[in-house]
């Protein structure tokens, strides 16, 4: 990012022209102008809405200041069980996603087989499949009379367990949506570890576990953090899968929020719910932003 300082300007006609500002000042003004449109968009679409929703969440039906919306979140039995359900689902899904994605990424990095190459080619696909379609595919695959149930019937007569419209279905959906993305981030980090570093460690007698703990883990830790951030945000704010295949009660927070807003027109409660969600995610978001800023310095 320090190109400006070394450009040797030839004495062409242009740069000899007297001007009110120096060339550097004009260039930096140009930079600002190029960045501002997207920054304003960001301001209008992220920063302002967040403040609006904080403001809205503290307003009662009569327009006066009140904590009632937040009280409702934690005292209403349906709402508070939804919150617990969502947090539980988020923690379990995120841990499973990260563990599986890490194992898969390590496998892809160090395997040379033909099948591993095929996985490498195919694992992008779920990232690009519309979430509605994937969810629909899961309904047809894991539903009561779904494909899996039919195939199982060829081997056993036991009734098929309930997956769709249940916790298990949401967990499967979260794994399906998030593992490829996490694997992609981790693969990219692992591929930047040079083979020579690993071979060098082997030469001085390090075992597989030692290589993993001393070299691979530290070098991929930061990407792990990024992956964790995106997975947690993705799962906690998920809507499509829970809307289509989640249980009716308790609901996932994203669905509960949408219903409060669009069905019951309870803007205050929906906003309080959103603010609460931002609050529990702000810690994760903070670590993500901080680690990114450190990197750039």
């Amino acid at each position: 990012m320090n190109g400006q300082s070394v450009t040797p300007s030839l004495p062409t006609g242009k740069s000899l022209k007297p001007s009110m500002f120096s060339r550097g000042a004009r260039r930096s003004a140009l930079g600002l102008v190029m960045v501002l449109p997207s920054f304003f968009l960001l301001l209008f679409m992220i920063v302002v809405p967040i403040f609006t929703s904080i403001q809205e969440s503290l307003k009662g039906n009569d327009g006066n200041f009140t904590w009632d919306n937040y009280k409702y979140l934690f005292t209403d039995p349906a709402m508070s069980s939804s919150i617990k359900y969502t947090i539980h689902l988020t923690v379990v899904s995120s841990i499973m996603v990260l563990v599986i994605a890490y194992l898969l990424a390590v496998f892809l990095r160090f395997s040379t087989g033909r099948l591993a190459k095929w996985i490498e080619r195919l694992y992008y696909i779920p990232m690009f499949i519309p979430s509605v379609i994937a969810t629909y595919g899961m309904i047809n695959m894991y539903g009561n009379h779904g494909w899996l149930a039919r195939i199982m019937l060829l081997f056993t007569n036991e009734p098929f367990m309930r997956i769709i419209y249940d916790y298990k279905g949401l967990l499967l959906a979260n794994l399906w949506f998030n593992i490829p993305f996490a694997t992609m981030l981790l693969s990219s980090a692992l591929s930047s570890i040079p083979n020579s570093a690993i071979e060098g460690a082997k030469d001085v007698g390090a075992g597989k576990i030692q290589i993993f703990i001393r070299i691979i883990l530290p070098l991929s830790f930061k990407s792990m953090l990024v992956a964790a951030t995106f997975v947690v945000m993705g799962v906690i704010g998920s809507f499509t899968a829970p809307f289509l295949i989640g249980p009716n009660a308790p609901q996932v927070l994203g669905v509960a929020m949408q219903q409060q807003f669009s069905v019951y027109f309870e803007t205050g409660i929906a906003s309080a719910c959103a603010v609460f969600m931002f609050a529990i995610c702000s810690l994760v978001g903070y670590f993500y932003i901080r680690s990114m800023m450190k990197e750039e310095r």
Partner: peptide
């Protein structure tokens, strides 16, 4: 400015959409 873009990912999507809808 560069890091301000991180804000688009620092909040869960559905929460953000509700906030945007209110606005």
């Amino acid at each position: 400015f560069l890091f301000s873009f991180l804000l688009t990912n620092a909040f869960p999507k559905m929460g953000l959409y509700v906030a945007i809808a209110v606005l």
